[in-house]
Design a protein around this nucleic acid. Structure first.
Length: 922
RNA sequence: GCUCGAGUGGUGGAAUAGGUAGACACGCAGGACUUAAAAUCCUGUGGGCAGCAAUGUCCGUACGGGUUCGAUUCCCGUCUCGAGCACCA
């Protein structure tokens, strides 16, 4: 048996051992407390893993292994978010089936992950593109299609209960989340034909088909959700996005807005993440107010939303969103052509252009007028882009004196501005602050703004022209994607009416098609599928978005092979929810909202037992790339070292970081790297070529991608794991910098040498000394506290200190070394398994028990020493044994601050080291 | 513009409840072992001043104030960086 630390042999051996012995497979065990540790499952991209990906996985794996040692039954699964755009785009280019490339990518990912020694229970693996998995995505969709949200009990109910109510009493007594408020009697309902009823019900379903303004990305040929668009460009690909009205499947997430907001308080998430979700939900309290509007022939009631009901006396015009349904009704004949021209120009703009022209004022007059319900004044109705159709009612009352957007509009089109707050100057800009005393405002005069807002709301409520209203920014999620590689909708169109398939039809498998691009007529790829029909009727041709499959995957891990339920009730009641969820912050307003919504929906229907899916959430930081540069002297093939480059005219060239070590270039490897450089010459400094560097995104084009496989080859997985933790706090973003990896590797070698010297085993059965026990127990305390707090980086330091100390003490005692192996095993599992077995154990170290911390081994041996001051015993010194009490007393009394310490305050203790006071506790 | 978060040596970063700032590691410098290299080990390493020296002393956690016997930590203001939202009425 080798006495050297041969990591590659050890790591291979134990990875095989874990797989063969199914060491990390778990089942429900009522005798043990459960703990569910989840990583955000990866999208298996063609590029494979780089060192940034495993950061969170390593931290969660340490946590899982630690909890296992602590006696918990730990569920720690992994799977793949396997539907998605890149595989499909690759298919469009190459004609290869996305399933094929996805399969290959998953195999590569699994191989890479397993090399790092994660304790995943692979028997529970899920893949979103597997029909056995997406059966339950489709199932949930059908459940949503068959449900409505009852606002009065804040809960979802089966749609049959709504139809029963309709046939008995119409819409009377119904307070439902809906696309638009409808009102009809039972008789009217009963007289409707099937098609009409279907249309009415669509207004209430949680999953519904509706016309909406969507983010359309022409280059991708698909619709995108709000969180898939950043700054007017698609997150995937960075293509421009335009607004387009389309008939789309949507999820009525907005029904859950208040609950999604309220339940945030119960979660152990970072404040910043909760804040992000709060902003995204965007609750705002205000009022709805009805304005009479007239196009000259007819008069209508138009409802608007405002948070400043108090400013109603200053409304000098109204504004409609260009997409508002009021526009056609209120456009006067003589204004028709200019309105149409304006609408056309607004529709043509991309989202990005709209943002770029943010402060440019545009708009057009409709020719119609509204009546201010309080003052009776006749005010013009305009159309402008600055009003959004998706928020409130898509129409506003404009108060230019107290809203900067209305102000800009009024100035531009020369509309009147009426100030409503005493002493405010609106000649240059609006006065938006909610402070001051009201004036020019009838019954509100003399009140402060804070008083006036509720007073105005009360008044309009009395007059029956409005009511208190809470609005949310959160919109319904658009659920259709015009592409191939996603879950098909189990919906067919019977006489044009969207009809759900029977549950027994699930899974509805994705059909084969010959090509993956949209059809020539612009239909989604599924239009190419031959026989894509159900009982002779056409099946829905769009597919579900990426977030569909990732919204409930944590539930399937609890019971991944169940074909008759999304999760067995007993298993759900055992595993309940995710105790620790680790993943990137980029999912804050996407996946993490959708998942919470999805879970709440299933909770309402009684399929799951917890209101919230993810109890504690940790956001790991991104690992950026650290690029290296070489400097070629212009017009030559000679490269000059970093420190000398200013003496020449050079071009900076990215060089593969894998042939650079500690910023020193491996010149031989460089010559072999690319044919162009085969004859490269170098100007060195001190015999070495020093490279320049910069922090950039980790990407192939910058040659700064570091593959974890390479690190495992050179240093081993245990070093990689420790180093990623050592780099800094898990939550923090930082560049991958291999400087320092040697230090961590050196630590593992030192650790090994505690057990094995040059001539064989060192460990003995001699009892531990007091000093050794102190080192061990301090470490136990430190490491458990650190892991619980997720500060793995300081744990690694603590290990280094402990190993140095034990080395210095010449520790060989099994009594110390065995617990050390257990302690380190979550961080560096392979070396610990090996040492554990060499210590004579046959079971995996993963099945050991975490050593208990015994305080008496570590407490400082201190004693109290009374100090008299001015003849009285005034305070006590808590002194370490090593300190001379007389010297300490002298130091305290001599301290110029002692008088201040004693000034009227009782002193509890003073901690002293020779000649210096360090700690006074009152 | 609004909302969060963060600014500590040459570098990554420590400092649990306000109590010896800079742990640990990298890098650097010097040394040991070696024919040599690699590996390994030891010593030093925030800055200024004084001293042959052990050492002493002052300044130091973005900047300016405040609270406190004592502030990297708490409070107010400023600057810089990062993240998110962005015409949300």
């Amino acid at each position: 048996m080798s006495t050297d630390y041969n990591f590659s042999e050890i790591e291979k051996k134990w990875q095989e051992f874990w797989a063969q012995n199914r060491t990390f497979q778990v089942t429900e065990d009522a005798g043990k407390p459960k703990f569910y540790v989840l990583d955000m499952f990866p999208y298996p991209s063609g590029a494979g893993l780089h060192v940034g990906h495993p950061l969170g996985y390593i931290a969660s794996d340490i946590y899982s292994r630690y909890k296992r040692l602590k006696g918990y039954n730990v569920l720690h699964p992994m799977g793949f978010d396997a539907f998605g755009l890149p595989a499909e785009q690759y298919a469009v280019q190459t004609g290869r089936h996305p399933a094929e490339t996805t399969e290959e990518n998953i195999a590569r990912y699994k191989r890479q992950l397993n090399r790092i020694g994660f304790s995943f229970d692979w028997s529970r693996e899920v893949r979103t593109c597997d029909p056995k998995y997406y059966k339950w995505t489709q199932w949930a969709f059908l459940k949503m299609f068959g449900s409505w949200y009852d606002n009065s009990i804040q809960k979802v109910r089966p749609i049959e209960e709504l139809t029963a109510h309709f046939s008995e009493s119409g819409t009377d007594g119904i307070d439902a989340a809906c696309s638009r408020v409808l009102s009809f009697t039972a008789a009217e309902w009963n007289a409707m034909d099937e098609g009409r009823r279907a249309a009415v019900l669509m207004n209430y379903r949680i999953a519904y088909l509706g016309e909406t303004s969507v983010n359309w990305c022409p280059q991708l040929g698909t619709v995108l959700a709000n969180d898939e668009v950043k700054e007017g460009l698609s997150v995937r690909g960075g293509y421009p996005v335009i607004q387009k009205k389309m008939q789309q499947w949507q999820l009525r997430v907005s029904a859950y807005a208040q609950r999604l907001l309220d339940d945030l308080d119960s979660l152990e998430w970072t404040d910043s993440l909760k804040e992000m979700q709060r902003n995204w939900i965007g609750r705002s309290e205000g009022a709805e107010m009805i304005f009479k509007v007239s196009n000259g022939e007819n008069t209508y009631d138009m409802t608007i939303f405002t948070t400043r009901a108090d400013t109603v006396f200053g409304v000098t015009f109204m504004v409609l969103a260009p997409e508002s349904e009021w526009v056609p009704r209120l456009t006067a004949p003589e204004m028709k052509s200019s309105v149409e021209e304006y609408l056309a120009s607004a529709a043509k703009k991309t989202e990005r252009e709209r943002i770029a022209e943010t402060r440019q004022v545009t708009g057009v007059f409709t020719g119609s007028y509204a009546v201010n319900p309080i003052t009776g004044a006749k005010i013009p109705v305009w159309i402008s882009e600055y009003v959004l159709s998706g928020y409130g009612t898509g129409a506003i009352m404009a108060v230019p004196a107290h809203d900067s957007r209305d102000y800009a509009f009024a100035k531009h089109f020369n509309l009147p501005i009426v100030p409503l707050i005493e002493g405010c100057d609106v000649s240059q800009e609006s006065f938006d602050a909610k402070e001051g005393i009201m004036c020019n405002s009838g019954f509100l005069n003399g009140m402060t703004v804070k008083e006036a807002i509720p007073a105005a709301v009360r008044k309009i409520q009395e007059l029956g022209i409005g009511r208190k209203k809470i609005n949310y920014r959160l919109r319904d999620a658009i659920f259709s994607r015009q592409r191939y590689w996603g879950e098909p909708f189990p919906i067919y169109y019977k006489d044009g009416v969207a009809t759900p398939m029977d549950m027994s039809c699930l899974p509805l498998c994705l059909p084969e098609i010959d090509r993956y691009q949209p059809t020539e007529s612009g239909e989604p790829p599924l239009a190419r599928a031959v026989g894509w029909e159900y009982q002779g009727w056409p099946i829905e041709k769009s597919t579900m978005p990426g977030f569909a499959g990732s919204s409930a995957y944590y539930l399937r891990y609890m019971d991944p092979h169940n074909d008759s339920a999304i999760v067995d009730r007993a298993k759900d009641e055992y595993w309940r929810d995710v105790d620790l969820y680790v993943g990137g912050t980029e999912h804050a307003t996407g996946h993490l909202i959708y998942s919470r919504f999805w879970n709440k929906f299933l909770y309402d229907l009684g399929y799951v037992c917890e209101k919230e899916p993810f109890r504690k959430l940790v956001n790991q930081g991104m690992i950026q790339g650290r690029s290296n540069f070489v400097y070629r002297i212009k017009g030559t093939n000679t490269f000059v070292s970093y420190g000398l480059k200013d003496k020449y005219e050079t071009t900076e060239i990215h060089v593969d970081v894998n042939i650079v070590h500690n910023d020193r270039l491996d010149t031989e490897a460089f010559r072999k790297w690319m044919p162009d450089f085969a004859t490269a010459e170098f100007i060195l400094e001190d015999g070495e070529y020093i490279c320049g560097w910069a922090v950039e995104k980790m990407s192939k084009s910058m040659f700064n991608v570091v593959n974890p496989d390479n690190v495992c080859d050179t240093y081993g997985a245990d070093t990689l794991r420790l180093y990623e933790m050592f780099l800094g706090p898990v939550e923090q973003s930082k560049p991958w910098d291999t400087k320092g990896i040697d230090g961590v590797h050196r630590f593992l070698k030192k650790f090994w040498r505690l057990f094995y010297g040059r001539d064989g085993a060192l460990f003995t059965d001699t009892p531990a000394t007091a000093a050794e026990l102190k080192v061990l127990h301090n470490l136990i305390r430190k490491v458990s506290a650190d892991i619980e707090n997720f500060s793995m980086n300081t744990s690694v330091s603590a290990f280094m200190i402990a190993v140095n100390e034990l080395t210095e003490l010449g520790c060989t005692s099994r009594e110390i070394l065995e617990p050390m192996v257990i302690l380190l095993s979550p961080f560096a599992p392979h070396i610990c398994e090996e040492l554990w077995s060499r210590l004579g154990h046959t079971a995996s170290v993963a099945n050991a028990a975490f050593p208990e911390y015994i305080e008496s081994y570590t407490v400082e041996n201190t004693f109290e020493y009374p100090v008299s001051f001015n003849g009285k015993t005034r305070f006590k010194l808590e002194l370490p044994k090593a300190v001379d009490p007389a010297a300490a007393e002298a130091a305290v009394l001599a301290s110029p601050n002692t008088e201040k310490y004693l000034a009227g305050k009782p002193v509890k203790k003073i901690i002293v080291v020779p000649s210096k006071i360090i700690n006074v506790v009152f």
